[in-house]
Computed example of a mutant assay.
Amino acid sequence: MDERIQLQYGCPAYIEGIGTPYGYVPSLGAGIAFCALFGLSTIVHTVQFIWKRQWWASVFSVGCLVEVIGWAGRTWSAKCPYNTTAFLMQISTLIIAPTFFTAGIYILLGRFIQVLGRESSFLKPNLYLWIFCTCDIISLVVQAVGGGMASGEADKIDGDTATGTHIMVAGIVFQLFSITIFVVCAVDFIRRTIRNRLLQSVTGSVIPLFAAMGWEGYLITREAYFIALDGAMMVVSVAIFNLLHPGWMLPSGKPDSYKMEVPR
């Protein structure tokens, strides 16, 4: 069996001249730090949604937990940089994790529309969740198919990972496109309700999530950029929802009972 294939199933230290799947050896310190940060946020989010009985907000806890798993995979890779299981563990979870937060934002925007009145949006509140979550699921399925194809080829001697990589990138591009459309809808909502302070949570967290998307290319193969544009941006996003949790931002009661007129 080829030496590179053997390295994928063991835990050897970095060997000079033999590249890793990352293009570098992941930092052990960064892996531990982000595991701790996302782990702390998981606990805080769980306490918050249980305390305020905002059960839908559990998506933020799940998203943080998935981030912990992903950074645990990178911590593992710091010691075993060639291990395929560790690499696939981190790349799959770190691609999926932001989806839980975008789903939370879709729900949150729908709740705001219920609070402020139907006039605050050209879409019905529930359509945000159905349309954009469906787009996220489609993009993740495409990415999973492409990633599986690329991984299967990577296990072969002289395997061609190009097709799988292109399919996976297509899934990421589709996801970015759907998020862009959502941002356009959110901007329209903001324009209609600019005077309402409830907008802070949505607008402050969408931008970090947008910056966190990505997988292939120059930036992702240099750890400093990955830490800054993925890890740090996601920490900012989850922290915003810790500080401006929907349980404190949204009024209590049934949605139909607290509609109000939208400033024109």
Rank of each mutant, 00 (worst) to 15 (best):
T75E: 03
A211F: 15
W55S: 09
V169R: 04
P81F: 09
S205Q: 10
I240R: 01
A30T: 12
R4A: 12
F34D: 00
G171T: 10
I240L: 12
L176Q: 14
W76M: 06
T203N: 08
F87Q: 01
S27C: 03
Y128I: 10
E153N: 01
I32W: 07
S151P: 00
G19R: 11
M249W: 01
W130I: 09
T99Q: 01
A228T: 15
R4V: 13
A36L: 15
I18D: 02
I43Y: 00
A224N: 13
I157R: 03
P26V: 05
W56H: 07
Q90P: 01
K52M: 08
S178L: 06
F34C: 02
A170M: 08
V184T: 11
N242R: 01
S77T: 02
Q48E: 09
N83L: 02
F60K: 05
P81D: 11
W71T: 07
E67N: 11
T165G: 08
D158T: 10
C185M: 12
I194A: 14
I43H: 02
F122K: 10
G147W: 05
G147N: 12
G39P: 03
G31Y: 04
Y106E: 06
Y225N: 14
R4F: 11
L229Q: 11
G39C: 05
E67H: 09
T221N: 14
I5A: 12
R4Q: 14
Y14P: 00
L127W: 09
I172C: 06
I107H: 10
A72C: 04
T102H: 06
P208H: 05
D158S: 07
A103L: 13
V262T: 14
H166N: 15
Y82G: 01
T165V: 13
G19P: 01
G148T: 09
I179K: 08
I190D: 11
S41Y: 01
A13I: 08
R111S: 05
T165P: 00
Q48N: 09
S121W: 03
G217W: 10
E3S: 13
F87K: 03
